[in-house]
Design a protein around this nucleic acid. Structure first.
Lengths: 334, 334
DNA sequence: AGCGCAATTGTATGCGCTTTCACGACGGTG
DNA sequence: CACCGTCGTGAAAGCGCATACAATTGCGCT
């Protein structure tokens, strides 16, 4: 490092250099690189030695131009600032990596128009498969996906009759055990503090599910509101909820529930004696806060999405749907 | 969709097709695509019409093979299951996207050997810049980075005299205000529940900082232990901490502090009357839990890392260091 | 000795794009 | 009116790799 020159030579060592050094053709180098069996082991080791000596690194871009496969998966998620999505991405990345694939990720901020732009970029990057969240999409996005033939799956959702390959769970049905549980514990004045439902089919399905199962018990929500995903905003919405005099507040997800919990504590309202509170996601914190919630198989979704996408690409078929289950986790807040 | 055939035709429309349709050469199409000014506006719109009609999407891989730029940044982080890293990635992705760059991300699970493998993959993918966390690395990784000349920055750390471009904060110095605060509030029996320090220069620097500033007050830790990043494990470690009869427990990060808080609550120990508890990161939850902690500029780090990397690539120079500040956030647990 | 075949290796082409260079048209100038 | 510079465009050469196909070799057999 005492040399004055910055050694910014972008690895000028190509397959040709390796070939020359090993006294073979580039075809043979390529064969060694790709584990072809038709290379004499003596030649193979000669090539491997040359590779090591030169510190040769194959150029993935050139490789994928030639093979028409990028060994890369794409994922577009609403946000990473939600632990449940982060967990999904974490698992998807791990699985993709295990299978020798990279992951390019983009965040849509819950905006379908933005998502459409990102889908286009994924198309240009020629990812081998794309994982999306939910099924609320612009027509343009749908067209893009259909006409390009890009293999893709929709996570966090499951629709028996949907057109896409869904890898997730039924958000509507997931609410049934929760409602049943609240009924069984004598709650009758149920209020809902939902997540934003615009452009969010999962949130909408949950709301619909809650109303549906409640009506089966001859009940309706005593109050309902939406808030953006944020502890603070949920906290601020608490007085509104209280105005309906509920004996239970169902929250669209755990983070919203945390906000409600903190607000209730500050307001001197006892949970669960005065009001029951429930969440959705079962984040790690929820155990500590003793929050009744619904556990979501985020890691499993991520793993399976990656796996299915890679498998489908290898077998040159369309990815298939896979349904997962959520489970009610009863804790102290209900 | 009534057609029996799956229309898996991977966009067979190339620049050549657009060129033919518009009655120009591929060179001109390329110029239009890249916003060259030397194209007559009449021709330009003809080309644009052809692009739209054919639904042409440029092949990013081929483009980067020709330009030797991938318009892609890489990031290798220890985990995504830590909200503070997720926030950093989120911001980095947003900034990269704003600048027209993609992001390929990999998770090392705090393993330097794994990280080395990932660095090699990033090298093969020829990312324009790479964001890493911290500076604990294998010699091989260091060699790889040096000899390849890949532009990279180390986030979450800052060392005046370090060899890498650091974009972060001084983990050692960050502890000074915290220790001072505990001193000012009369705490003398300080215990430490640190994160794992192996392969983690940030965690080590924090521990060292705590010991250093404590010794300036003529004190030493009454007890010290490490735990992996997990609420539950931190909870389980609480009795060990208690055995030292501390009047304050400094935790390596907020998540560990949450575990301590929950454990204290279960043990009937009052915070802060019996014991003060502090964290590190200032996650969104910490406000609700009223946790005294140290705020880390995760989003700013992400943004600046992306920005610096892209800027450096454009200007063909080495990325530069940038120091950020942490701030003590005094709340109810101390 | 001559033939056929399998095992290896090399040659050459192309993946889809950018970019250098050459070329033609055109307007202004001396 | 010849000349020159500028602008707009096309032809063609790669970027670094994989791979179809050709070529070579060695071997067993007849």
């Amino acid at each position: 490092m005492t040399s004055g020159k910055p050694d910014f030579i972008t690895s000028p060592v190509r397959q040709t250099d390796v070939a020359r050094k090993a006294g073979v053709s580039t075809a043979t180098v390529s064969r060694v690189l790709n584990g072809s069996t038709l290379v004499r082991s003596e030649v193979r080791s000669r090539v491997e030695a040359a590779i090591a000596e030169l510190g040769y690194l194959p150029h993935e871009g050139a490789r994928s131009l030639a093979t028409r496969r990028t060994r890369t998966l794409g994922m577009i998620i609403p946000t990473l600032n939600n632990a449940i999505f982060a967990a999904g991405v974490n698992a998807l990345e791990a699985e993709a990596r295990d299978q020798g694939h990279g992951l390019v990720i983009s965040v849509s901020n819950y905006d379908p128009v933005q998502e459409t732009v990102l889908i286009r970029q994924m198309l240009e990057r020629k990812v081998d498969g794309l994982a999306l969240v939910g099924n609320d999409r612009t027509d343009e996005a749908r067209d893009l996906l259909r006409s390009s033939g890009l293999r893709h799956v929709a996570a966090w959702t499951f629709d028996q009759h949907g057109a896409t390959a869904d890898i997730g769970f039924d958000n509507h049905a997931a609410m049934e055990p929760l409602v049943a549980h609240l009924m069984a514990t004598g709650r009758r004045r149920i209020a809902l503090l939902a997540g934003v439902t615009a452009d969010n089919d999962r949130a909408r399905a949950r709301v619909k599910g809650i109303r549906h199962y409640l009506s089966e018990h001859g009940l309706a929500l005593v109050g309902s509101r939406e808030v953006r995903y944020s502890i603070r905003l949920a906290q601020a919405a608490f007085p509104d909820m209280l105005a309906h005099r509920p004996d239970a507040i169902i929250c669209g997800n755990d983070v919203i529930a945390y906000g409600v919990l903190f607000a209730a504590q500050q307001a001197g309202i006892d949970v669960p004696d005065d009001i029951a509170v429930t969440g959705f996601d079962d984040l790690p914190m929820s155990e500590g806060l003793n929050l009744t919630t619904i556990a979501v198989p985020a890691a499993e979704m991520g793993r399976r999405a990656a796996n299915e996408l890679i498998r489908a690409a290898e077998e040159e078929r369309a990815p298939e749907s896979y349904e997962m289950q959520t489970t009610l986790v009863r804790r102290g807040t209900s």
